[in-house]
Amino acid sequence: MGKVMVITSGKGGVGKTTTTANLGTGLAALGQKVCLVDTDIGLRNLDVVLGLENRIVYDLLDVLEGRCELRKALIRDKQYGERLVLIPAAQTREKDEVDPDQMLELVEQLKEEYDFVILDSPAGIEHGFKNAISGADMAILITTPEVSAVRDADRVVGLLESAGLHDPQVIINRLRPDMVRKGDMMDISDVDDILRIPILGVVPDDEHIIVSTNRGEPVVNDKKSKAGQAYRNIARRLLGEEIPFMDLQERNLMGWFRKVLS
């Protein structure tokens, strides 16, 4: 029996889809069988981030409404094939057409076959969010170190608890160590003070992400990228390994000077 994780945030644009793509790819690279489900109906883009858009024939709604067999809607990843598959969101339909029971049934079926089923939730806390969390055994919250994103994450923790999803974990995304050091950005402990839930990882802000998103190749495969390293670490933590948090300080001459002087 696999694990079902929902990736959610409340606030939009904090990196749910990027995280889903990278954790899925990272887990597949570690030999796990992973199924990604894009539940953001009407605004699909997980397929784009994975570079699989041109292979879509059937989507999540086709599966839920029985218009195609589950097997036919699974899109195999370019690199990992059967080990990493995607069920894309429907692009054209209204999201109110999905109901939580149908999602639950689908997820039950998927976790027989896959080690990880990762549900990419839409932003917001309405119908689509409720569909996405139904059937999940665990939740991963994404937040950026901004007051508004943390506030929304806090709200979502409360909603997850009332939906029976206890012990969510958080990934702090797009941290900028230079700004934290100057006191211009919330740091990890500020976020932790408010949310008080385990931190699964901290992903630094990284230009490689934009490049890789546009190319449709998850940054987790990029050995030179710090964000990629952070995602690889998170994937290994999900498998129960103890990986210490990365040192996000810069490694250039100025950084070295500062270290010597401090």
Partner: peptide, 21 residues
Amino acid sequence: RSGQRLHYDGNVVVMGDVNAG
């Protein structure tokens, strides 16, 4: 947490935080 409201006729003791919102 944010978005949660507690109304009570009496005193309230919270073993935890009362977050913004």
